[in-house]
Simulated assay, not measured.
Amino acid sequence: MDDASLLALAYRGRPATVAELATLAQLPVTGIHDAVARLRDRGRLGGQGDDLVYANPADWAAESVAARAAELRETARDLLGEIERVVTELPGMIGHWSIGQTTADPMPVVTRHGPRASEDVWFEFGRRDVGTLDAVLPDIDRFLTSPDERVARFSAAFRAKDAVRVILPTAVADDPRVAALLTAFTAAGMEYRFLDDPPSWFWIDGDQIAIPYEWGEHRPTSVVSVRSGALAGMLSAYFSSLWRTATPATTSSEPWTGLLLLMRRGLTLDAASRQIGVNPRTGRRRIAAAMSHYGVSTLFALGAAWAADGAHTTRAR
Rank of each mutant, 00 (worst) to 15 (best):
L6D: 05
L7S: 00
Y11T: 01
G13F: 10
A16V: 07
Q26R: 14
G31Y: 09
I32K: 05
H33Q: 13
G47D: 03
L52T: 03
L52I: 05
Y54N: 03
Y54T: 03
A55V: 14
D59G: 14
A61E: 00
A61I: 02
A67E: 12
R68Y: 15
L79W: 12
G81P: 08
E82Q: 14
T88M: 07
P91L: 05
G100L: 04
A104D: 15
P108L: 05
V109A: 06
V110F: 11
V110N: 11
T111A: 10
T111G: 09
R116Y: 07
A117L: 05
D120Q: 13
V121C: 00
F123T: 11
F125K: 01
R128E: 02
R128G: 04
G131H: 02
L133K: 00
D134R: 12
L137T: 04
D141A: 07
R142L: 08
D148I: 07
F158I: 09
A163F: 10
I167K: 08
D174I: 07
D175R: 03
D175K: 02
P176R: 03
T183C: 15
T186C: 06
A188K: 05
G189L: 06
M190F: 02
Y192P: 00
Y192V: 01
P199V: 02
P199R: 05
S200R: 06
D207S: 10
Q208S: 04
A210F: 00
A210R: 00
A210L: 03
E214W: 12
E217H: 09
R219D: 13
R219H: 11
P220H: 12
V223W: 01
G229D: 03
A232C: 01
M234C: 13
L235F: 00
F239H: 03
S240H: 13
S241A: 11
R244Y: 12
T250K: 13
E254V: 15
P255E: 11
W256Q: 04
T257A: 12
G258W: 11
G258S: 15
L261N: 09
L261T: 09
L262F: 08
L262D: 07
L267H: 03
D270F: 07
D270A: 12
Q275L: 15
I276N: 02
R284W: 09
R285P: 06
R285T: 08
A288K: 10
S292A: 14
S297M: 08
S297D: 06
T298R: 01
L299R: 02
G303T: 11
D309M: 12
G310T: 10
T313Q: 10
R317L: 15
